[in-house]
Amino acid sequence: MPVQDVVFGFGAHTGLGDVPELLRMAQQADDDGLDIFSLSDHPYIGGRLDAYAALGFVLGRTRHITGFANVTNLPTRPAPMLARTVTSLSALSGGRIVLGMGAGGLWDRIADMGVPRLSPGDAVDAFEEAIVLVKSLSGGGPPVTHRGRHYRVDEIEPAPVPAPPVWTGSVGPRSLAATGRVADGWIPGHAADWLSERYRTSRQVIDEAAAAAGRNPREIRTVFNFPGRITDRPAAATRDRDGRWIGGSAGEWAEELTGAVLEHGASGFTLFPAGDGEHDAVSLARWAREVVPAVREAIAKEDG
C-alpha cells in the first residue's frame, strides 16, 4: 500500500521581537524544500504577534511552504470569520494554508478577553460544529444557513475557495472522536510520539470514530510536534529514561523518523527546539538538508 505523503516542517515563536528571525527561518525553510511552518496562537499575550497576521505576512514573503496556526485558539476566532480568514489566505497564497484547530485550553486567559467561558463539553461541541461550518462556508455552492448550538449564519455565500485541510490538537476522548468524524489530521498533544501510550490510546479513539462515521481512518493524517537536538555525532542515547525522544545525529533522526512512517503510520513532523530554546540556523539547515532528504529517500525506496 502506498505511503501517505509525508510533510516536514518547523515550529516558530511569535514574539514581537522575533519577526526578523521568523522571516529568515521561513525563507530558509522555503528555499530548502520544507513543507510547513507553524505558529502558536495566544492572542491574550500582549508580546505575541497575532498568529493569522503573522501567517499572512510570512506567506507573502515565501513561495512554496505552507503555514498554519498550531493550533488556532477557536474561542477567540468565531467560526464564520475564521472561514473567511483561511479561505482568503488560501486564495492569496495559492493554497498554502492548513487550518490547525483547538477547542481552547487556557480558559482563564480566554475569558479575560471577554469571551464567554464554556464548559469542557460545550467547548468540544463548539469545536466540532466550527469545523463543519468552516468547511460548509468554503468551496462554493448555494448560500449556507446554519442554526447550531454555538453558531448561527443565515444565507451566507461560501467562498469559492476549497476549505484547507483541518488538523486538530485534540487531547480528550470527546475531541478525539470529533477529530475522527470531521477533521483531516491530528497533532498529538504534549509532544507525544508514536511510541507513547498517549498516542496509541488516542489514535484508537480517532480511528473508531472515523469508521463509525463511514470514513477511512487512514485518511486522517498524524502530524507530530517533535522536539529534539540534532547533534554532530551519534548520541549515546536518543531517548530519555521515560522513553521520550531527545535527539541525536542526522542519521539517527533519519532512522527514527523513517521507522515512524513505515511502521507506525506517521505522516508529518514539525521540528521544535529542545526545551524552551529557539531554532538556530545550523540545526534548521541540518533538519532540512540532511534529515528530511534522507527520510524522503528511504520512504521512496520502500514505496517504490
Rank of each mutant, 00 (worst) to 15 (best):
A288M: 11
P173M: 03
A163W: 06
D30C: 09
A69F: 01
G189E: 06
V153T: 09
A250P: 04
V144D: 04
D108Q: 13
L284I: 15
T14E: 12
A285C: 00
N216W: 02
I110A: 06
S196V: 09
P162W: 09
E155A: 14
Y44Q: 12
E256K: 03
H190A: 15
G265T: 12
A91W: 05
A266D: 10
R147I: 09
N70H: 08
A177W: 10
R221I: 01
G140R: 08
V115S: 05
H279Q: 12
D112S: 15
E157S: 13
L271Y: 01
D276S: 12
D32N: 09
A235L: 10
P160Y: 08
W186C: 05
A53Q: 14
R239V: 15
P143N: 11
Q27Y: 03
Q4C: 01
R63N: 10
H13M: 11
F68C: 01
S202F: 03
A12M: 14
T14R: 08
Q204F: 00
W253T: 03
A51M: 06
I97V: 15
V205S: 07
G102H: 04
G67Y: 08
D31W: 01
A183Q: 06
L55Q: 10
M113S: 05
R174V: 10
R286T: 14
E278V: 13
R63W: 04
L99G: 12
A79P: 08
D112Q: 13
V86E: 10
I187R: 00
P2W: 04
D108N: 13
L271I: 13
F127N: 07
R96Y: 10
G247I: 12
A177I: 05
A274K: 03
